[in-house]
């Protein structure tokens, strides 16, 4: 109920953001139903301009652009979402753990993370992918591990702030175990910043995968993927064919939507603090 009350009070910008995300999610879930053609079906000439049959024209080998865009939502969003979830699972558990246990565990873990973070993510990912080759599993794991360092930092910092409060000390003095502390004392209080961070990390991962695909090192064709679609159709831009802007715009559309909600969420989270 509290959730619906919150929704009713949401500002216009957040509602727009929610609508933007819902459109994307709907496209992703119902892709086979709403897409006019098959994902890899060649339906006409190369780079046809928009028409009644092909609302957004066709791509560099004559596939329907709208269909590719809809399937692209499915692949791109699903992979980014799974990666972010994985990154949060690794990052927040280890972050909470380090903060609650403290001592040597915390020190070692934090030093390792510092070093991983000192390394530019894109370059690191490129180097690892050059060794592992580009498979979707490798992609998800590499990005999740790299990204979990940022999640670790935030979760640890948030958990530290909570951990020093007396209610945690009280639980410790009662004799509660680490897991209970993490689950019942820390997690409920860490939720607001973590949820906002989830939005931000999702955007980052999503853009990151798009960039890798754009560089030809992410999701491989013929799977429809927005970053890859930009790459395939970019050559035509200089001839005045702007097909590549559709998938690029779709990426921007989703991230703007998520950011609008994150902004609103950060706003309430900071207001609730005192």
């Amino acid at each position: 109920m509290a959730f619906f009350k919150l929704l009713r009070q949401s500002p216009l910008s957040a509602r727009i953001g929610m609508a933007m995300i819902l459109i994307n999610i709907a496209a992703a879930i119902f892709a086979p139903v709403i897409a006019p053609y098959g994902e890899t079906e060649v339906v006409g000439d190369v780079w046809l301009s928009a028409s009644k049959d092909h609302l957004l024209g066709t791509d560099h080998i004559g596939r329907d652009m709208l269909t590719r865009l809809i399937y692209g939502a499915r692949n791109t969003i699903a992979i980014a979402f799974v990666t972010t979830m994985l990154s949060f699972l690794i990052g927040s558990i280890s972050g909470f753990f380090a903060a609650t246990i403290g001592g040597w565990t915390d020190l070692t873990l934090s030093r390792v993370i510092d070093i991983l973070m000192a390394f530019p993510t894109l370059i690191f990912a490129l180097m690892v992918l050059s060794v592992t080759g580009t498979s979707i599993t490798a992609l998800i794991f590499v990005i999740a591990v790299l990204d979990s360092t940022r999640v670790y930092r935030l979760s640890r910092a948030v958990a530290m702030d909570i951990e020093v409060m007396e209610f945690c000390e009280a639980a410790r003095l009662r004799g509660e175990r680490t897991w209970w502390l993490m689950r019942h004392e820390i997690l409920p209080n860490a939720m607001p910043p973590l949820v906002a961070e989830f939005g931000l990390r999702f955007c980052f991962v999503f853009l990151f995968i798009a960039a890798l695909s754009f560089l030809g090192l992410g999701i491989q064709p013929p799977t429809a993927d927005w970053g890859g679609m930009v790459r395939e159709n970019a050559g035509a831009i200089t001839f005045g064919i702007f097909t590549a802007l559709w998938p690029a715009g779709a990426i921007a559309f989703l991230t703007v939507g998520v950011n609008l909600i994150v902004d609103w969420f950060l706003h309430i989270a900071s207001g609730l603090k005192d």
Binding site: E166, F167, A170, H184, N189
Partner: peptide, 14 residues
């Protein structure tokens, strides 16, 4: 034990 700051001595989410 009972603490100085009642605000931080009880978990606000419980």
């Amino acid at each position: 034990m009972i603490y100085q700051m009642p605000d931080t001595a009880v978990n606000p989410r419980q």
